[in-house]
Design a protein around this nucleic acid. Structure first.
Length: 676
DNA sequence: TTAGGGTTAG
């Protein structure tokens, strides 16, 4: 610092230089500051061997530093040299702190850029995921009669993604052949990569088969290409061929094949791959360890996964997140939380992993609480986070927060993809906002079976049975294949619309038209459809003949229908079956009491009431959720614990009066029976 | 003065 403070008073230094030196000196980047000092000093005193501009650029750590060096070079008249441009553009194009706009501004000033400059500009655009800009630069380059070289195509194709038409990719392949670079190994690699990106794994494989010999990188590309298209068996198989041909895998090969093992939950294969590391045949690194943690966790071996995790010297956010996901998948969300709390750094992926953990075990309030923590921690939600929160909102009926998220998605340009759209539609429908859901549905640029299913199930649940069935036929017209959830929506739509015959037909068509075997939920829907419409015998026969053991929901549905149609005999059968399955189910007694009362079977009622009293059966109070100002409140009947309960009960009384005036008669049988 | 391959989340 002594040198620096002396420099401050040195008359030789104009303010610009001083500010560069000072800013680095204060950031304890003294080496860099001194280099800037000597660069300036040597140039001023015309001495030889100044620290090169290249050295200074290499030492740059921020764009600001680069701009200051550039300013210095301009001041020294050095910016006239093409090499200076090259260096600065190179920095901007290849460095994490680079800036393509800055590079472009300099690039356009160069009259006849060399092929090197064109190449690194293309590389720069590919690096920041702007393949369109890279491609237009390539076209411009050809127009200016600059011949591409073997570097051009790997840089260009590296950035290609689905945003660029496949035709362009094929066009580039033709250019490669035309310019005679098709035998260059780097170019071949980039072609395999490009075909894999477009999902044309067979084309990639053809290029691979023609060229692959002992080149590990090319094998790795092909294995990861299969992974990319979720063809995990093929990637495992190719890895085995690689081993047979005695091409020695490196850490990248192991990472790819471990990813396939973990997707296929092939623990044995995973262990065999791990052996390469244990035997010291392949040196481990962070990414490889992460892949191992992931493989063991996905195969349900949390102990082995944690074993690798605890043996690691370096861990990154992915290591931790993988462990959290592993705990979540093994049903240990509280354990996941403990690891989460220990993380040195959390990104939106880690937050979302834990949010999904709470979602998985239906702890929706915890989802919202954690989301609040995430906001406090200033971590911006991404599309995945948004989907998780919207799902929680849907379950809680938290419309206000759901609406806030919709605004957030627009405001912060969250990728509003098909999943976000589906989650939004589902949230609106579960919150009863049918019109808003339909508006979003109409504006979806693409729809999948989940979009249609959300709308069909949601419309049915909101009582729009006919609309739901119309949607279903539109779905079929759009060539979208329904799944078992879609059919739950269809069957419940029939129930709501009272379309018994149609319901029977839809039930039959599940298997005949779409190869979906009805599951117990579908049988439950059928029982509901038949029961509500008064076809109690048929409903009973369905239960008797279904291929699986009826559960309490199915018998409960029949019992409900018996109450509706006042069928005491059938109700007793259903209740008896229910109590066989769940002797402690108090709701059965309540239902049966109701039915006896409705049918004026006072003797039976009294006998049952006696049993209820003797066994001390109490009805579990119902619970409702309400969202006010983004906070979800939980209420149970007769609950006075809420700080504002007095006001609430006054309000309730007022509402009761209004209801009574409107002619509403409450169904208070449970209370009358003394088991409410 | 420029080259290649890999891990996490609906």
């Amino acid at each position: 610092m002594l040198i620096i403070s002396q420099l401050h008073t040195h008359r030789l230094f104009p303010p610009l230089i001083l500010s560069v030196i000072r800013s680095h000196a204060f950031r304890k980047n003294v080496t860099f500051a001194v280099s800037v000092y000597s660069f300036h000093h040597f140039h001023n005193s015309r001495q030889t061997n100044p620290p090169s501009l290249g050295y200074l650029l290499q030492e740059c750590r921020t764009l600001d530093q680069l701009k200051r060096i550039h300013g210095l070079a301009i001041q020294k008249g050095l910016d006239l040299h093409a090499s200076v441009y090259s260096k600065i553009i190179g920095f901007c194009c290849t460095n994490d702190f680079g800036d393509m706009n800055y590079a472009r501004d300099l690039f356009v000033k160069i009259l006849e850029p060399s092929v090197y400059l064109w190449n690194i500009m293309i590389k720069g655009y590919s690096r920041i995921n702007c393949p369109e800009d890279a491609a237009s630069l390539y076209v411009e380059m050809l127009r200016k009669d600059v011949k591409p070289d073997t570097y051009t195509f790997p840089f260009l194709l590296k950035g290609f993604d689905e945003g660029i038409p496949f035709e362009c990719g094929k066009g580039i392949h033709a250019h490669i052949c035309k310019f005679g670079f098709d035998l260059n190994e780097y170019v071949q690699h980039s072609l395999i990569h490009m075909y894999c990106v477009y999902g044309q794994v067979d084309m990639a494989r053809r290029a691979f088969d023609m060229n692959a010999k002992t080149d590990v990188a090319m094998w790795n590309l092909m294995v990861s290409g299969y992974n990319r298209r979720k063809q995990f068996e093929k990637s495992m198989k190719l890895f085995n061929v690689m081993e047979e041909k005695e091409i020695f895998p490196n850490s990248v090969s192991l990472v790819s094949v471990l990813s396939a093992c973990s997707e296929l939950k092939d623990l044995d294969a995973g262990k065999r791959i791990h052996q390469y590391v244990k035997d010291g045949k392949v040196k481990s690194n962070l990414i490889l360890n992460n892949a191992l943690i992931n493989m063991y966790a996905n195969c349900g071996e949390m102990e082995a996964s944690l074993g690798v995790f605890s043996s690691m010297q370096d861990r990154d956010v992915i290591s931790w997140t993988t462990i959290i996901k592993g705990c979540v998948n093994s049903g240990q969300v509280d354990q996941a939380r403990r690891y989460f709390d220990q993380m040195p750094h959390r990104d939106s992926v880690s937050w979302t992993a834990l949010l999904d953990g709470y979602l998985k075990v239906n702890r929706f309030k915890d989802v919202l609480l954690l989301f609040r923590e995430m906001q406090t921690a200033n971590v911006r939600p991404d599309a995945f986070t948004t989907v998780s929160i919207l799902t929680a909102c849907a379950h809680l009926g938290a419309l206000e927060l759901g609406e806030w998220l919709r605004v957030y998605i627009d405001k912060y340009n969250i990728k509003d993809d098909i999943c976000v759209g589906n989650a939004l539609i589902d949230m609106y429908l579960k919150c009863g906002e049918v019109d808003k859901a339909l508006r979003k549905f109409a504006n979806m640029p693409r729809r999948d079976k989940f979009t249609w299913t959300a709308v069909i199930v949601g419309l049915a649940a909101n009582g729009h049975g006919k609309k739901a069935l119309n949607m279903f036929s539109e779905m079929l017209d759009a060539q979208e294949t329904p799944d078992e959830v879609t059919y739950v929506g269809v069957l419940s739509a029939c129930t709501h619309a009272g379309m018994v015959n149609e319901g029977r037909n839809y039930f039959a068509s599940m298997a005949t038209h779409h190869e979906i075997e009805p599951n117990i939920v579908h049988y439950g829907c059928l029982v509901d459809l038949l029961g509500r419409s008064g076809n109690l015998k048929e409903a009973y026969n369905v239960i008797k003949n279904m291929p699986m053991k009826p559960n309490t929901i199915v018998w409960g549905t029949l019992l409900g229908a018996c109450r509706l149609h006042k069928d005491v005999e059938m109700a007793e059968t259903a209740a008896a079956q229910l109590l066989l399955l769940e002797p402690e189910n108090e709701a059965v007694y309540v239902h049966l009491c109701n039915i006896y009362a409705t049918c004026k079977k006072w003797e039976s009622l009294q006998a049952l009431r006696k049993i209820v009293m003797e066994r001390g059966i109490k009805k579990t109070p119902g619970c409702s959720l309400m969202e006010v100002n983004g906070v979800v409140h939980e209420f149970v009947a007769g609950d006075h614990t809420h700080p504002q309960s007095e006001e609430m009960f006054l309000q309730l009384e007022e509402m009761n009066e209004i209801l009574k005036l409107a002619g509403y008669v409450p169904d208070n049988l449970e209370l009358m029976l003394g088991i409410g």
